[in-house]
């Protein structure tokens, strides 16, 4: 059993079925024309069929062991940090917030604190100047 194929296949088959079911609830068009639900159902059917094939292939295939993410910890940390950064989006102090976020990220990825903070600050100011001052995109 190949885990990646099996999981992807199962998830996408479920999504395909969801599209078919939800498509049936959309209003039909007059005069026998395809309505708002036609494409969701067509795509859902195609997806469900193909995903089932992938699911079968995954169940029958040779095991490749659990799929490897590599440096799992660093990826997870980066993703979590970015999530926190996005949750704070628009809460003020854009330059400081961005510099701190980047500096923490860089140091967790093994960079030394002081150069990381200097670079992060420079990057934050550069982005602020380019977008807020230059392009009139309010960053706060």
């Amino acid at each position: 059993m190949r885990h990646a194929d099996t999981i992807c296949g199962a998830l996408l088959a479920a999504l395909g079925c969801a599209l078919i079911v939800s498509g049936a609830a959309f209003p039909a068009a007059a005069g026998g024309l395809p309505g708002a639900g036609f494409f969701p159902q067509a795509i859902g059917t195609l997806m469900a069929v193909l995903a089932s094939a992938l699911l079968l292939r995954g169940l029958r295939g040779r095991s490749e062991g659990p799929f490897s993410i590599g440096n799992m910890r660093e990826v997870a940390v980066t993703a979590a940090l970015l999530m926190a950064y996005l949750l704070l989006w628009g809460s003020g102090w854009f330059v400081v917030r961005t510099a701190v976020f980047l500096a923490i990220m860089l140091s967790l990825l093994g960079q030394r604190w002081i150069p990381a903070f200097g670079y992060a600050s420079a990057l934050a100011v550069l982005v602020y100047l380019a977008f807020d001052v230059g392009l009139n995109v309010t960053l706060e």
């Binding site: 809460s91 003020g92 102090w93 854009f94 330059v95 100011v125 100047l129 807020d132 001052v133 960053l139």
Partner: peptide, 15 residues
């Protein structure tokens, strides 16, 4: 969601 004066300080310093 109040806008701090940072952007203005920064813009002021720079320009």
């Amino acid at each position: 969601m109040t806008a701090p004066p940072l952007r203005w300080i920064l813009a002021g310093c720079l320009f």
